Amino acid sequence: MSDQKKYVLVTGGSRGIGRAICIQLAKDTDYSILINYHTNEDAANETLNSIKELGGSGEIIKFDVSDFNDVKQQLDDWNNTHENTIIEVLVNNAGITKDGLFLWMQPNDWNSVIQTNLNSFYNVTNHVLKDMLLNKYGRIINIVSVSGLKGTVGQTNYAASKGAIIAATKSLAQEIAKKNVTVNAVAPGFIKTDMTIDLDEKELKRLIPANRFGHPEEVAQLVSFLASKNSSYITGEIININGGIYS
């Protein structure tokens, strides 16, 4: 199987932490980068161009991680047109927030966050896992959040989705460790991205021992290590990257 072309699939890879992960993996590995996006094709192509400028290779793939049938259809089609390839690393990064106090939270604000952040883990991981197990090698890295560990006011839906992924990470890791497939989660705190752009950084950084927000590239460096062969004895772990805010 050594002559297979090997890919890493990053969901929500067009912007923010996802983009930084795609670029870092292109720098550090020989993988082709499969950049998943849902709506913003221009942003996905920008990420792809950055990878190509580094001398890396990749392509973009459109599907809605929250829709099981769409994920299956698009990845099946991709597999059918890419013979002798394998997705060896999966980074489950796609996620959304719909913040608000639980008392006033509308059903759609709950359901859409659970579908995009939690159900996507099943939809995508379940699809690519079989090949990893057959190949007896794989890396699954789930991007979670400090909210899933300690909870955050106004994020009951988001915290629930990320807390569930944390539990799933620990369980799946135990099921497949013998097959040399690891499953870990990375839990960022406040990272400078579109998702945190409206937050009061000046006020919030007082809560952070490191006294600053993190950068997407710092998260990407950690993901890159977990995606490598050097991390083979680490599985079922949730690694915090938050400047000490939850330590």
Results as ranks from 00 to 15, higher is better:
residue 167 A to E: 14
residue 222 L to G: 01
residue 57 S to T: 14
residue 89 V to F: 02
residue 247 S to T: 15
residue 21 I to R: 01
residue 126 N to A: 10
residue 173 A to Y: 11
residue 21 I to M: 03
residue 216 P to C: 01
residue 40 N to C: 09
residue 12 G to P: 04
residue 207 L to E: 13
residue 45 N to D: 15
residue 139 R to C: 05
residue 104 W to S: 11
residue 222 L to K: 02
residue 62 K to Q: 11
residue 157 N to P: 03
residue 15 R to S: 09
residue 222 L to R: 01
residue 179 K to G: 15
residue 154 G to V: 06
residue 109 D to E: 08
residue 154 G to H: 12
residue 98 K to Q: 14
residue 160 A to M: 06
residue 84 N to L: 03
residue 239 I to E: 13
residue 119 N to V: 12
residue 80 N to W: 11
residue 14 S to A: 12
residue 102 F to D: 14
residue 237 E to R: 15
residue 27 K to W: 07
residue 110 W to C: 00
residue 105 M to G: 02
residue 6 K to I: 04
residue 186 V to H: 08
residue 139 R to L: 05
residue 211 N to L: 13
residue 66 S to N: 15
residue 166 I to D: 08
residue 19 R to G: 10
residue 139 R to D: 11
residue 5 K to I: 01
residue 244 G to Y: 14
residue 236 G to A: 09
residue 131 D to L: 03
residue 54 L to H: 05
residue 126 N to S: 09
residue 121 F to N: 04
residue 20 A to G: 02
residue 16 G to E: 12
residue 210 A to R: 12
residue 222 L to Q: 01
residue 162 K to M: 05
residue 68 F to S: 12
residue 192 K to P: 07
residue 61 I to D: 07
residue 238 I to F: 09
residue 28 D to A: 03
residue 169 T to C: 03
residue 114 I to A: 06
residue 21 I to Y: 05
residue 233 Y to C: 08
residue 41 E to P: 07
residue 109 D to Q: 07
residue 177 A to S: 08
residue 78 W to V: 00
residue 74 Q to R: 11
residue 6 K to D: 05
residue 2 S to D: 14
residue 21 I to N: 06
residue 143 I to V: 00
residue 46 E to Q: 15
residue 26 A to S: 04
residue 70 D to S: 08
residue 28 D to P: 02
residue 103 L to D: 13
